[in-house]
Simulated assay, not measured.
Amino acid sequence: MWHARVVKARSSAAELVVTGHVRINGTRETSPGHAIKLGDVITVALDRTVRVLKVTGFNERRGDATSARVLYEELGDAKRN
């Protein structure tokens, strides 16, 4: 999530996972080091929204916002109640 610029810091990404705000292919993930693969669908509860992202690529380094955008496909964005 940090490489794809979904969050600003690695620690923020880890905290989201540990606190149960991340699902991978519909299953709640609690391990920040869990490996993902191409085609995985990641659901992230951020602030007051839920983002659903399909993994479409990987980068060795964190790049700018434009290069990060090609790492995932936005599948949905729903308001949380």
Results as ranks from 00 to 15, higher is better:
residue 1 M to R: 06
residue 2 W to E: 05
residue 2 W to G: 01
residue 4 A to I: 07
residue 4 A to P: 00
residue 5 R to I: 00
residue 5 R to E: 09
residue 5 R to G: 07
residue 6 V to P: 06
residue 6 V to C: 11
residue 8 K to N: 09
residue 8 K to A: 08
residue 8 K to R: 13
residue 10 R to V: 09
residue 10 R to Y: 03
residue 11 S to P: 06
residue 11 S to G: 07
residue 12 S to I: 07
residue 14 A to V: 01
residue 15 E to H: 14
residue 16 L to P: 04
residue 16 L to W: 09
residue 17 V to F: 05
residue 19 T to W: 00
residue 20 G to L: 09
residue 20 G to T: 03
residue 21 H to R: 15
residue 21 H to I: 02
residue 21 H to W: 06
residue 22 V to E: 11
residue 23 R to V: 03
residue 24 I to Y: 04
residue 25 N to A: 07
residue 25 N to H: 03
residue 26 G to C: 06
residue 26 G to Q: 05
residue 27 T to E: 15
residue 31 S to C: 11
residue 32 P to R: 11
residue 32 P to T: 07
residue 33 G to R: 13
residue 33 G to N: 15
residue 33 G to H: 13
residue 34 H to E: 11
residue 34 H to D: 01
residue 35 A to T: 09
residue 36 I to T: 12
residue 40 D to G: 02
residue 41 V to P: 02
residue 41 V to E: 09
residue 44 V to L: 15
residue 45 A to E: 15
residue 45 A to W: 11
residue 48 R to I: 06
residue 49 T to I: 12
residue 49 T to L: 08
residue 50 V to R: 13
residue 50 V to C: 13
residue 51 R to E: 08
residue 51 R to P: 00
residue 51 R to A: 00
residue 53 L to P: 01
residue 54 K to H: 01
residue 54 K to W: 00
residue 55 V to N: 01
residue 58 F to P: 03
residue 59 N to F: 12
residue 60 E to P: 09
residue 60 E to T: 14
residue 63 G to A: 14
residue 65 A to F: 06
residue 67 S to H: 10
residue 67 S to A: 15
residue 68 A to D: 00
residue 69 R to E: 10
residue 70 V to N: 14
residue 73 E to S: 14
residue 73 E to W: 02
residue 73 E to A: 14
residue 74 E to R: 10
residue 74 E to K: 13
residue 77 D to A: 03
residue 78 A to K: 12
residue 78 A to I: 08
residue 79 K to R: 14
